[in-house]
Amino acid sequence: MKQRYVLRVNGRDLEAEAGAHESLLDVLRERLRLTGSKKGCNEAECGSCTVLLDGRPVVSCLVLVPDAADRDVVTIEALAEEGVPHPIQRQMVEQGGVQCGYCTPGMIMSAYALLRDNPDPTDEEIRFAISGNICRCTGYGKIVKAVRAAALEMKEQSGNGGAAS
């Protein structure tokens, strides 16, 4: 039995037909064609599908679509503004935090939520924030480095009156 849901995704109201048993991840990927959020396990273990729901990072494979209706959803696709990559995205590239790339969007969403709440995290805090995101390629070191570099870049930007998220 399909129903019509309105999802506020990346600042826009989008309608999707879905069954009440379907996950937010499936609706994002299959109905709304937002495939940046990846399906690595579909059992809330790998973090590849991490999005923000009302500002909090969640594994979207574990959120049923009725529970996401009329709430704010932010996906990886919204992070770059007018084609300019977010500092976390740029630093992930520059520091070598991206290899196969499959965990990368979810990883970046977790880091994004962290830096918004804690602009100056310790390495331990970064590791804790991304500990729900499994990466099989990098060993995490360069990801931690990228988040640290992004934090610095964002701090400098806001210090210069720039718009840090």
């Binding site: 396990c41 059992e43 273990e45 790998c46 390495d123 970064i126 590791r127 804790f128 991304i130 500990s131 729900g132 995101n133 499994i134 990466c135 099989r136 060993g139 995490y140 070191g141 990801i143 931690v144």
Partner: peptide, 17 residues
């Protein structure tokens, strides 16, 4: 048969290499 049972290292398990 699930990543709940098959444990892959997370960022908290790996030291700075």
């Amino acid at each position: 048969n699930s990543l709940a049972f098959y444990l892959v290292p997370t960022a908290m398990d790996v030291p700075d290499i």
